[in-house]
């Protein structure tokens, strides 16, 4: 194992994690966008011609719900992004640790004194 092998392993692991993370976040944003847009349209229609026409209190409740759902969606995107960063970091650390371990054991360091995965979790 040399530095090129370690780099290759890191890039491959990173590609997999970032691809998966991007796909989850992108689908989530699209889905939430559709749901929130449809709800906004339904509120407007009901307010104009439906049951919300004479119900100010319920109209305000649905508007507030729309705002709260939009804020919660944005926070969920932050959380999904943090999760992607975590997985990307851990993929890099895993590949690096694998390389370090291979080099050290190749140089005669006892393999049983080196854990198979990175030993510290922050």
């Amino acid at each position: 194992m040399d530095s090129q092998d370690i780099l290759g392993n890191m890039v491959a692991a990173l590609k997999g994690e970032l691809g998966q993370g991007y796909s989850t976040i992108s689908n989530f944003i699209q889905n939430q966008g559709n749901l929130l847009a449809r709800q906004a349209e339904n509120i407007a229609t009901s307010r104009a011609t439906g049951s919300l026409k004479d119900d100010d209190e319920l109209f305000a409740f649905f508007l507030q719900g729309l705002q709260q759902n939009a804020e919660n969606a944005a926070r969920s995107v932050v959380m999904l992004s943090a999760l992607t960063i975590e997985q990307a970091w851990n993929a890099i650390a895993g590949a690096l640790w694998g390389g370090v371990r291979a080099i050290l054991t190749g140089a005669g360091f006892p393999a049983n004194r080196l854990p198979e995965t990175p030993p510290f979790n922050l």
Binding site: L35, N42, F62, N69, S76
Partner: peptide, 17 residues
């Protein structure tokens, strides 16, 4: 019926999150 649709519209994004 239109009010049920609006409650459902409030529920769907939250459960999906």
């Amino acid at each position: 019926p239109d009010i049920v649709v609006l409650f459902r519209g409030n529920y769907d994004p939250a459960i999906a999150q």
